[in-house]
Protein backbone atom coordinates (compact mmCIF):
# COMPACT_ATOMS: atom_id res chain seq x y z
CA UNK A 1 0.00 0.00 0.00
CA UNK A 2 1.11 3.58 -0.48
CA UNK A 3 0.02 7.10 -0.99
CA UNK A 4 -2.71 7.66 -3.54
CA UNK A 5 -3.52 10.99 -5.07
CA UNK A 6 -7.01 12.16 -5.89
CA UNK A 7 -6.73 13.39 -9.44
CA UNK A 8 -9.50 15.92 -8.94
CA UNK A 9 -8.77 17.43 -5.56
CA UNK A 10 -5.07 16.64 -5.45
CA UNK A 11 -5.43 15.26 -1.94
CA UNK A 12 -3.06 12.51 -0.85
CA UNK A 13 -4.33 9.58 1.17
CA UNK A 14 -2.16 7.02 2.85
CA UNK A 15 -3.20 3.40 3.16
CA UNK A 16 -1.69 0.84 5.47
CA UNK A 17 0.49 1.09 8.52
CA UNK A 18 3.87 1.05 6.89
CA UNK A 19 5.93 4.21 6.89
CA UNK A 20 5.86 5.37 3.33
CA UNK A 21 7.18 8.39 1.48
CA UNK A 22 5.46 10.47 -1.19
CA UNK A 23 8.00 12.51 -3.08
CA UNK A 24 7.45 15.60 -5.15
CA UNK A 25 8.47 14.99 -8.70
CA UNK A 26 10.45 18.15 -9.25
CA UNK A 27 13.53 19.39 -7.50
CA UNK A 28 12.80 21.73 -4.64
CA UNK A 29 13.90 25.37 -5.02
CA UNK A 30 17.12 26.46 -3.38
CA UNK A 31 15.24 28.21 -0.58
CA UNK A 32 11.99 26.31 -0.48
CA UNK A 33 8.93 26.42 1.67
CA UNK A 34 6.68 23.37 1.74
CA UNK A 35 3.12 23.66 2.93
CA UNK A 36 0.95 20.68 3.71
CA UNK A 37 -2.67 20.90 4.75
CA UNK A 38 -3.63 18.06 7.02
CA UNK A 39 -7.21 17.11 7.69
CA UNK A 40 -6.39 15.84 11.16
CA UNK A 41 -3.62 15.70 13.67
CA UNK A 42 -4.18 11.98 13.86
CA UNK A 43 -2.38 11.23 10.60
CA UNK A 44 1.02 11.98 12.09
CA UNK A 45 2.00 13.26 8.69
CA UNK A 46 5.45 14.79 8.50
CA UNK A 47 7.18 16.76 5.83
CA UNK A 48 10.44 15.10 4.90
CA UNK A 49 13.16 17.36 3.65
CA UNK A 50 16.70 16.63 2.52
CA UNK A 51 15.34 13.19 2.04
CA UNK A 52 16.91 10.20 0.41
CA UNK A 53 15.17 8.64 -2.56
CA UNK A 54 13.07 6.38 -0.36
CA UNK A 55 12.51 9.03 2.29
CA UNK A 56 13.95 6.79 4.96
CA UNK A 57 16.80 9.17 5.59
CA UNK A 58 16.33 12.88 6.11
CA UNK A 59 14.75 15.45 8.39
CA UNK A 60 11.13 14.83 9.22
CA UNK A 61 9.16 17.83 10.37
CA UNK A 62 5.69 17.57 11.80
CA UNK A 63 3.70 16.76 14.87
CA UNK A 64 3.06 13.77 16.98
CA UNK A 65 -0.59 13.77 17.80
CA UNK A 66 0.05 13.21 21.45
CA UNK A 67 2.26 16.25 21.73
CA UNK A 68 -0.07 18.89 23.04
Amino acid sequence: MAWTRNSITGALTHSGTSTEFWEITTDAPLRPEFIAGLTSTAGNVKVAVRASADGATGFWCGIEARTL
Partner: peptide, 12 residues
Amino acid sequence: RAGVVSAVDGAV
Protein backbone atom coordinates in the same frame (compact mmCIF):
# COMPACT_ATOMS: atom_id res chain seq x y z
CA ARG B 1 14.19 16.18 -2.55
CA ALA B 2 11.13 16.48 -0.30
CA GLY B 3 7.77 14.90 0.32
CA VAL B 4 5.51 13.61 3.06
CA VAL B 5 5.72 10.49 5.18
CA SER B 6 3.20 8.75 7.37
CA ALA B 7 2.61 5.35 8.87
CA VAL B 8 -1.04 5.96 9.71
CA ASP B 9 -3.69 4.29 7.69
CA GLY B 10 -6.06 6.88 6.35
CA ALA B 11 -3.75 9.84 6.83
CA VAL B 12 -4.76 12.58 4.44
